[in-house]
Amino acid sequence: MTHADPSLTLHGVFRRFGYRWVVRDVSLDVAHGEAVLLVGGNGAGKTTLLRVVSGLLKASKGRVERQGAVGMVAHHTMMYDALTARENLRFFGRLHGRSDRTRIDALLDRMGLLHVGDERIGTFSRGMLQRLAIARALLPEPRVLLLDEPLTGLDDSASRTVVEVLAELKRGGAGMMIASHQLVELVGSADRVGYMVGGRMAALEPCGDAGQVVQRYRELADRG
């Protein structure tokens, strides 16, 4: 499937670590306002693929085209434990040239963290850190959002907040790639599913319900 004006395009992306090819020949494009869910076992290459797409890792072969700023949420918070939530956002905001107080407060409020804005994040729970990481990812008003296990460690209400925010961003026209095992919560947000097996995109298909996705993944994984 090709789009006239994709937010994100991957042309035959490969990545190796040492002698090992972790991502092999992945091509796809993501339209504005579209979300692609990446499904695959541990070591299937989802995290590496997202890191290559973000630009954090260089592709060993192939290339990635991104339209506009990239926001990323990964396993690590990418923030400083000794600083408060607000200080962290202000610092990264400064790097992006957007550190105005009202905007940072609005982001904190949106993620339900306004009341702990002046506490050091070293004391935060996993769920609070994850929400703050999302707020950080939203600082540059990203047109491309890359989320690696965005719901890990979140309780039900926090998950719902995140899913709502994602829906809002999609409506705003951001293209997304989401790697997750939490299919039940996320299939509703996804338009297509990319099945990753052994570093390859084994299939890229419209998203059904969680049961169908699991079924299809097992089929593809068994085929190897």
Partner: peptide, 17 residues
Amino acid sequence: LLERENRAVDGLRLSPA
């Protein structure tokens, strides 16, 4: 060490810095 801890360095590298 500070940048490495929570991979804050990735945050720097994702920014226009």
